[in-house]
Write a protein that binds this DNA or RNA. Structure first.
Lengths: 133, 133
DNA sequence: CTCCTATTAGTAACCATTATCATTATTAAC
DNA sequence: GTTAATAATGATAATGGTTACTAATAGGAG
């Protein structure tokens, strides 16, 4: 394992901020100033395949990465864009229901939430629901 | 409403194939050969905001569009890429659980399935689970 | 150390999507 | 029907995240 790959993995494991490839690139660059963005992408891809990292392809947004490999869902804050973990299992019945409703053999599923984090929610006190403001 | 927007909406409503912007562009082009791709994108965006169309931002894939505006989930076939409807509600408890687990005020959520459609599943008889083959 | 293979840095290419802008269509008022 | 104000169009350029390419370099087995 090269120094670059090790550094990327360590930085990823040292945060719960779900960094994008570019953010990770900036983080690793403090240690390895000559690393290239392509190297970060390549290694993240490889480590995702190997199960060392999780590639979060949240709909309509750039990819983010997670050093926490255990299956879990995520919420994205509509205010600040932050992504947080949602330690929650997807009920088996839900997957079974989807299989029945669609006729597909279900192999995987993602549950993605959008919402307002505590900080952003405080600024919006009184308002509620799914408005876009 | 312009002829272009009307044509886009009619084509979208006339299919359940969840076309991408480019596919829709090809479809509409048969009627309006001089329409531009930008116009298709612009109108799909506008109609999504107006609630006339649904923009499906399935993780890690190009956007697809749906003329069926009722809330529902989707499965993508890992074999052929086809997207099908999953007429299923997301349980309230799931959203409530996510709110509790994350501290966010949840505004929306997406449930995305990957799997094998009947046709592709037949070719894979015997195998099961979430392998990538 | 030496050869072989994998990986790197740097850069160019890709592709879906947006933005720009001069021209053209639509609408509402007369 | 004309006109003036406004909105939408087509064509193309720009953007941004990601992938592909390549010559140079690093790692590791023997």
């Amino acid at each position: 394992m090269t120094a670059q790959r090790r550094a990327i993995l360590e930085e990823l494991r040292g945060t719960d901020a779900h960094p994008s490839a570019t953010e990770l690139y900036e983080m690793v660059r403090r240690r390895l100033p000559r690393i290239s963005l392509g190297t970060v992408y390549r290694n993240l891809e490889i480590m995702s395949e190997e199960g060392l990292a999780l590639k979060l392809e949240h709909a309509g947004a750039e990819c983010r990465f997670d050093g926490n490999v255990a299956p879990h869902s995520h919420v994205r804050c509509l205010g600040c864009g932050r992504i947080s973990d949602v330690p929650m299992d997807i009920p088996r019945e839900l997957v079974a229901g989807a299989a029945k409703a669609s006729g597909y053999r279900i192999a995987g599923c993602r549950l993605e939430f959008d919402g307002w984090c505590r900080k952003c929610g405080r600024k919006r006190r009184g308002r509620c629901g799914a408005d876009g403001a």
